[in-house]
Nucleic acid binder design. Sequence first.
RNA 1: GGGGAGAUUCCAGAGCGGCCAAAUGGGGCAGACUGUAAAUCUGUUGUCUACGACUUCGGAGGUUCGAAUCCUCCUCUCCCCA
Length: 425
Amino acid sequence: MNFFEELKWRGMVHDYMPGTEEQLMKEMTTAYVGIDPTADSLHIGHLVSVMLLKHLQLAGHKPIVLVGGATGMIGDPSGKSEERNLLTADTIENNLQSIKKQLTRFLDFGNIPNQAEIVNNYDWMKQFSFLDFIRDVGKHISVNYMMAKDSVKKRLETGLSFTEFTYQLVQGYDFLHLYEHKNCKLQMGGSDQWGNIVTGTELIRRKANGEAFALTCPLITKSDGGKFGKTEKGNIWLDPAKTSPYEFYQFWLRVSDEDALKYLKIFTLLRPEVMEQLALEHHPAPHLRLLQKTLAKELTIMVHGEEQLQTAEDASQILFGAGTSETLAKLDEATFLSIFDGVPLFEVPKAVIEPGVNILELICTHSKVFPSKGEARRMLEGGGLSINKNKVASIDASINTSDLINQKYLLVQKGKKNYVLLKIV
RNA sequence: GGGGAGAUUCCAGAGCGGCCAAAUGGGGCAGACUGUAAAUCUGUUGUCUACGACUUCGGAGGUUCGAAUCCUCCUCUCCCCA
């Protein structure tokens, strides 16, 4: 199976320019995707682009990651309703380094013919003067052409700044630059990038008299229409300090049946036969969540490694399996701690708990499990609060040392899925 | 430059002197049902020393026993005409 076929069966092809497939068949092709260095970690939304490159490299082509140090300072108007804050060069540099580190888990930067590369468009944009830019680049693309782009049209109503309007030219120039300096003939990205990518190919044709291609993949959606990759707590990051491996694992485990297979295709490298088999087994017994478990497992290994997966699985087993207050009580401290690594933890002084303390006081005043008592009260009254896996029945309930696990811990549960650990010190 | 409309709780959007912590919808959270899915139904969605109190309706003042609601000024947004 070649690269193109691979992407197709995985449902990762949304649109491509005529000739793209032929180009990829013809020779080792260099292709790039752009990533905005808006944070010091990638999140799972970025993973699609990364997987595109992964497949590309596996098929023998050469991947380039373009970190948008320059474009990140501007902000793409696509899909945004408002102009974004500009980042400083320092922040971007810092973010870039962290991102680069994460990418090495996916792409081979080693000394091979099709080694992955990472480039920063700030490096070539920073000395480009405004005059030079409008003369050498702006001259080749008409305003009419630029205005016709969806990303621009959508913003005409609410207004967009000249800076944002220029974005597609800057991105287009990146492509031209890579075409000229790295023989890069293909740009990939999400379908929202189509317009920007095509501006690049257009620029390459007019200015370099060359031929370049575009390939986009569908934007990842959720079957219920929500935004992919977001939870109550925000983005799912690859950085374990931002999203613990446990949370990361749980995110994928909670994917709906409808989405599970789709995500498996996009985010894992499993072969079609394997997936077919999984789907077949999943169908008669959906509650076993075979697809979700496989998805969570594959991704956690890929991003965090085997060891972290083990912990995440153990923790999930305890928290969501047949776990009861008895099983909790039986855990020794080391196991207990390793399992709850990644679950938010608050410390409470021993003096508070020794005389016995009201439950609401404990979780609102002495620790910030809930931001306000009103919220905690509501949760409790609605039957959504448990301590050590036992539902708290009344707002007058009090906690004392006999409730502690290993004489030190309390497991507070908000609803079904959210756990917080209290440590008595 | 001239004329008009508006700014309300997470969002959209009612309210136009006391019955307003503020309708309704969306979203969020929780409960029930389940499979840590989906759908559905129910509850909840300012804070607290909690049948009561306190702080909210762009900002600052004022009128009034009493203001999200009336007046003045300011800031910002949108629309129309030049």
